[in-house]
Design a protein around this nucleic acid. Structure first.
Lengths: 127, 127
DNA sequence: AGGCCGGTTGACGTTAACGTTAACGTCACC
DNA sequence: GGTGACGTTAACGTTAACGTCAACCGGCCT
């Protein structure tokens, strides 16, 4: 049903990455597009895989980790061990994010304090 | 008042990093400990700087960015431009974190779906 | 004296994730 | 039939943030 296929630069443009990057992902075994002659042709499924890779990247997963994420979507990999290790990684990410949010909150608070001090100093100067 | 100074391995142990890392930060101009002869001596202020660096690291700031964070605590740098650019970076971090949290939520949802499918498949096999 | 601990300075090695040429093919268009 | 725009492979370059030696020194214990 979903007819449309994509060229490499279609995807590069859509996701704002370079074609080199996409080829690199293939080199690392994360994508396996078909070929028409020498030219790569990407299916919607490939596009989805790319989206997963980029989402993993935003979360700080390595390409290897993104690979296992992708494999979770492949029915032939109903591997419980993989599932559990992936779940563990995601849980770790979650706790990292919580730490980071805390860090950010503290940092913003400190910045506001610094601002206050600066304003005070300016007020004194004006006297 | 606060008497205690620290050796390089004190700090390395406390923050679970290597001494090489601490020297590297000095090499990059983020720390300037005093010396007793050749040996580095770290004051509580140095320790605080190190904490700031590591917090920045957790947030994905580069060492250069951490350097400007440190400079915010130095009274001689009441620089408004720096303050604003730092604030902008922190805001950007915040929005990245929001994106990441969303990514994680979606990912966990998808994992739960994958789990359900796997359980279904196992149930069918049992029949 | 001998040995170990902890510190020091180079200086080269490493890793991930691409960037950057170079050198080439192929199609549509004018 | 030239000229872009787009595609290809191959291979070397880059960057940050350390790791990993090697070779050395000073102090303290026994």
């Amino acid at each position: 049903m979903a007819r449309s296929n994509y060229t490499i630069s279609d995807l590069a443009a859509e996701f704002d990455i370079t074609t080199r990057t996409i080829r690199f992902y293939e080199e690392k075994g994360l994508l396996q597009p078909e070929r028409s002659g020498n030219t790569r042709i990407y299916t919607p499924a490939d596009r989805t895989k790319l989206k997963l890779i980029l989402r993993g990247k935003r979360l700080g997963f390595s390409l290897d980790e993104s690979r296992s994420i992708i494999e979770m979507y492949d029915p032939s990999h109903g591997n419980t061990d993989q599932y559990n290790s992936l779940l563990a990684k995601i849980r770790e990410k979650r706790s990292q994010l919580e730490q980071q949010l805390h860090d950010i909150e503290v940092m913003m608070l400190e910045l506001r304090e610094a601002e206050d001090k600066a304003l005070e100093a300016m007020a004194k100067d004006k006297q």
